[in-house]
Simulated assay, not measured.
Amino acid sequence: MGLVLVGETFRDALEAGLTDYDFLRGTETYKSDWTTKQRRTVSLRVLSPGGDGEWFVRREQGMRQVREVAKRLLPQDAVERVRRLRRRLSAVRG
């Protein structure tokens, strides 16, 4: 069903005269069924020296490193299950 819905959104975009379709962030496998191109997302943060923002960024970087190690160590199907769970929890909190 999801495949059909994505195809329909492509059709709507083409009919509207759009030339780009952005899947947004993430590496979900269904995205590679539709394209071979990838764009990188770049973000910039400006923090005041010594503020709470520095602590937050360090914590976030540490969590990102933990996730990357877990992705390398866990089987791919386990990684996909965790992603689905995180999306469900995010939608509930949303």
Results as ranks from 00 to 15, higher is better:
residue 61 Q to R: 15
residue 51 G to D: 14
residue 26 G to T: 03
residue 26 G to E: 02
residue 57 V to N: 07
residue 56 F to E: 12
residue 44 L to W: 13
residue 43 S to V: 08
residue 32 S to Q: 11
residue 55 W to R: 15
residue 6 V to D: 00
residue 18 L to V: 02
residue 17 G to E: 03
residue 29 T to Q: 07
residue 29 T to G: 00
residue 52 D to R: 15
residue 43 S to Q: 06
residue 13 A to T: 01
residue 66 V to E: 06
residue 20 D to L: 03
residue 55 W to T: 15
residue 23 F to P: 00
residue 1 M to F: 15
residue 30 Y to P: 00
residue 34 W to C: 06
residue 13 A to R: 05
residue 67 R to W: 06
residue 55 W to P: 00
residue 67 R to L: 12
residue 24 L to N: 02
residue 38 Q to T: 15
residue 27 T to Q: 02
residue 55 W to G: 09
residue 3 L to V: 08
residue 62 G to R: 10
residue 58 R to T: 12
residue 19 T to G: 03
residue 51 G to H: 12
residue 23 F to L: 01
residue 48 S to I: 12
residue 10 F to A: 05
residue 40 R to I: 08
residue 22 D to N: 13
residue 26 G to Y: 09
residue 8 E to V: 13
residue 35 T to E: 10
residue 40 R to H: 07
residue 22 D to L: 08
residue 33 D to P: 00
residue 55 W to C: 04
residue 67 R to I: 13
residue 15 E to F: 05
residue 64 R to D: 01
residue 59 R to A: 12
residue 30 Y to E: 02
residue 8 E to M: 13
residue 30 Y to R: 02
residue 5 L to I: 07
residue 49 P to L: 12
residue 60 E to M: 11
residue 29 T to F: 03
residue 9 T to Q: 14
residue 19 T to K: 14
residue 1 M to G: 14
residue 40 R to Y: 08
residue 2 G to Y: 10
